[in-house]
Design a protein around this nucleic acid. Sequence first.
DNA 1: GCAACCTGTTACTTTATAAGTAACATATTA
DNA 2: TAATATGTTACTTATAAAGTAACAGGTTGC
Lengths: 141, 141
Amino acid sequence: MKYSHRLSDAIHILTYIGISDSNTDLSSRAIAGSIDSNPSLVRRLMATLSNTGLINSTPGKISLELSRSAKDISLLDVYKAIEEPQLLHVDPKTNLKCIVGANIQKTLADAYDKIQQQAEQEMANISIQEIVDSILAENKK
Amino acid sequence: MKYSHRLSDAIHILTYIGISDSNTDLSSRAIAGSIDSNPSLVRRLMATLSNTGLINSTPGKISLELSRSAKDISLLDVYKAIEEPQLLHVDPKTNLKCIVGANIQKTLADAYDKIQQQAEQEMANISIQEIVDSILAENKK
DNA sequence: GCAACCTGTTACTTTATAAGTAACATATTA
DNA sequence: TAATATGTTACTTATAAAGTAACAGGTTGC
C-alpha cells in the first residue's frame, strides 16, 4: 500500500498551530497549503484531533488552538488520537493444521507488542514543543 | 496499502527450520503450506535470507538449515535482512515555502529515527529460539 | 436576511505497495 | 534423461491511503 503520512500530517497541524501567532491564518486551507495537501484531508485530521481533545475548534469559525501546552502533548498522544495501526503486522492467514502455523500468530503478536511498547515509550518522550523548537532551530541555520 | 507480512513470513520460515527434525519436509512447497501462502513467495524470502547469510541453501536441492544457532538470530537480524522500510514515514511532500513545511521533514526524520532505534533494540532482544520455544509451549496448552 | 466564509462529514476516484500467480533458467538426484 | 528442486523475473490482483468533490450546518459581517 501507500505509506501512511497521517501521523506526520497530524503532527504538522499541531506544530503549525503551536508555531502560529495572532496574525497566522489557521484555516484548513492555509494549513493544507503548508502540508501541500488538500483542505479536506486537513479537516478530517482536525476533526479527529478535536474529538480526542488535543485541539479546540469551532464549526463554522476559524478558532483553532491547542487544548493544552505544546510541551504537554507527546507524539504518542497524537499517534493514539489518529488510531494508527500497529507498527508491525502478524500474518493472519497461516495454516492452523501445522504446529508452526497454528501457534505463531499469538507468539508473534506478543513479540510485536513488546516492540510496539518500546516504540511508544519513545513517542511519549517527544513533545510537540520539541518539534516546534527543532523547526525554529533548523530555520535559523 | 496492504499491510506487509514479509517480516512475519520470514520469521515463520526460520522458525519452521528451527523446529524441524530430520523427517521434516523443508521444500518451499511444504513451508508455503505452513504459511498458507505460495512457494514462489517463500522462495523469494528464502533467497533473501540466504543472500544475507541467515540460512544456507543449495539450488536444485532441498538442503536448508539455519546458518547459526537459533538463539543467535534475532528478529532485528531478520528485519534488516528483508529490508523492511522504516516503521514510521515522513511526508516527503510539504510546502518548502512555509517555515513548518520547509523544516518539519528533517525534524520528524530525527524523531522517527529515535523511535525506530528503540523498536530495533527490542527486536534485537528477541531470538528465533524464543519464538520456537514459545510456539512449542503454546502447542502444549 | 443573506452572501460569503468556515468546519465537519460523506462518498467516490486515484495511486502506491504488497500478495498472489505463472513461467522459466539452472542445479540435483535417481 | 525425467522429475523435482531453488532462484529469478514478470505480471495480475487486492488493499489501504491520499486526493478530490460535494454538501450540511455554523458563524460573521453587511
